[in-house]
């Protein structure tokens, strides 16, 4: 057995050679005086699904919210270190958070459609960013996004119905459509299936597999099965540190770290 202080060092392959979309170096996140993320360095590959797993409170969601600077909206939250997306440090002063978020879509734990029509939900992003110059273009974007989210066929006759009238799984896919309506490069998913039943979950997972072809996806999940099913790379977090990261298959079949092993085999978490 390793000594405890040694055991919190990241093992596996945090740094990638090629195909890097995001590289994080020495990231720390503090809530007031409490440190939520400790000295974290990891690369995220392009057009792949990366899963963040770990017990509750391990900082995986906090880390996810660093990528689109959603932590900015929380008072006394401080982020240090570098997160570089396509050669740009997003925590650089020059970077505009609005512009950044237009490049990065986010899907939340609970489906949160706006209390507006399905159409308005999807059109929201393109509209505020001025992406469509006329109604036809906007229609295109809305329909295209709904199709990509695999929802169009189910709702094509009720685009004017409120988004909140859909079932939970449909709502979540609507939220995915809303996220991809501004054509992001990266999609962040914060436990997108935790509020859904197995059938709806299956549909979302299928969708994630489909989206992977065009988007880089990071998904935070509580379910190890889900991580195994949808992701190519998996990162295991514990107490604000990254314990192990590597190919999903390797992590689940042959974890290097004792903590990872314990977590995957269900000994804690």
């Amino acid at each position: 057995m390793r000594a405890p202080e040694e055991s919190l060092k990241t093992v596996g392959t945090p740094i990638l050679e090629k195909n890097v979309k995001i590289s994080c170096r020495d990231v720390n996140v503090y809530y007031g005086t409490k440190q939520a993320i400790k000295d974290l360095s990891v690369d995220i590959a392009e057009r792949e699904v990366t899963a963040f797993i770990g017990p509750s409170g391990c900082g995986k969601s906090t880390f996810l919210r660093c990528f689109n600077r959603m932590n900015d909206t929380i008072k006394d939250c401080k982020v240090t270190g570098e997160i570089i997306i396509d050669d740009e440090n997003i925590y650089d002063k020059k970077i505009d958070a609005v512009l950044l978020r237009a490049r990065i879509g986010m899907v939340f734990q609970k489906p949160n459609p706006f209390p507006k029509s399905i159409y308005q939900n999807v059109a929201y992003g393109p509209r505020i960013h001025g992406l469509a110059t006329n109604k036809a273009e906007l229609d295109d974007i809305v329909i295209g996004s709904l199709e990509k989210a695999g929802l169009f066929n189910e709702v094509k006759d009720q685009l004017e119905h409120p988004g909140t009238s859909l079932s939970g799984g449909q709502q979540q896919r609507l939220c995915i459509a809303r996220a991809i309506s501004v054509q992001p490069e990266l999609i962040l998913m914060d436990e997108p299936c935790s509020a859904l039943d197995p059938i709806a979950t299956g549909k979302i997972e299928e969708l994630i597999n489909e989206l992977r072809k065009n988007y880089t996806i990071i998904i935070v999940t509580h379910s190890m099965q889900q991580a195994a099913r949808v992701s190519q790379r998996t990162a295991f977090f514990h107490l604000g540190g990254l314990i192990e990261v590597g190919d999903t298959k390797k992590i689940f079949v042959n974890p290097e770290h004792r903590l990872t092993q314990d977590y995957i085999t269900g000994r804690y978490g």
Binding site: D96, V98, L99, A102, R103, H129, G130, L131, Q183
Partner: peptide
């Protein structure tokens, strides 16, 4: 091009 468009409105 898309980003330019967004930037223009910022």
């Amino acid at each position: 091009a898309r980003l330019l468009r967004i930037k223009a409105g910022l």
